[in-house]
């Protein structure tokens, strides 16, 4: 009896942990887009937007999202070394990753005015993705732990 109860608790905890991991993933996605939007705002507000100053602007920006921090680091290294950047994808979908690649690879390649216009355009697109990610987190993220726990309990009942 004790071992079966232990199994039920373990499966419940395992399910809850899986749900929590999913919740964190959804939360990080939502935070990532908000952070990327903030970065583009900071970038477009910086007075000189040329390829020489992009590494400095990137270096000055304190990213809150770990994925964005990693991507900005990779982008900065690529600009400094003159190679095309290989950006980490993280939890982004193929389309989102392509957009982010387009945004970060194009930094500093235009004149200041067109750079600002492009940044505003990208902010609009990223805002849409960000809204979707935030909605998904609001709807599913908070119930993921409960659902995971209940799924674990259901598995325990079926294995009893």
């Amino acid at each position: 009896m004790t071992d079966k109860l232990l199994m039920a608790v373990c499966l419940g905890c395992l399910g809850a942990a899986t749900g929590y991991a999913l919740c964190i993933r959804l939360k990080r996605r939502a935070e990532y887009f908000a952070d990327l939007d903030d970065f583009l705002r900071v970038f477009s507000e910086s007075l000189v937007c040329s390829l020489d100053t992009v590494p400095r602007v990137i270096g000055d920006y304190a990213a809150r999202s770990p994925l964005l921090a990693k991507q900005l680091g990779e982008c900065r290294e690529a600009i400094v070394s003159g190679r095309p950047p290989e950006l980490s994808r993280g939890s982004l979908t193929e389309r989102e990753a392509a957009l982010v690649r387009e945004v970060l690879c194009g930094l500093g390649s235009r004149s200041a005015e067109s750079e600002r216009a492009a940044a505003e355009n990208y902010r609009r697109k990223i805002g849409e993705y960000g809204k979707l990610a935030a909605d998904k987190y609001a709807k599913l993220g908070r119930s993921a732990v409960k659902l995971g726990f209940l799924a674990g309990l259901l598995a325990a009942v079926l294995c009893w």
Binding site: L140, S143, L147, L150, A151, L154, V157, L158
Partner: peptide
Amino acid sequence: VGLITAMVSQILKKS
């Protein structure tokens, strides 16, 4: 099974 299914169903409906 009935209880857990009902709870999961309610949570999903709220989401």
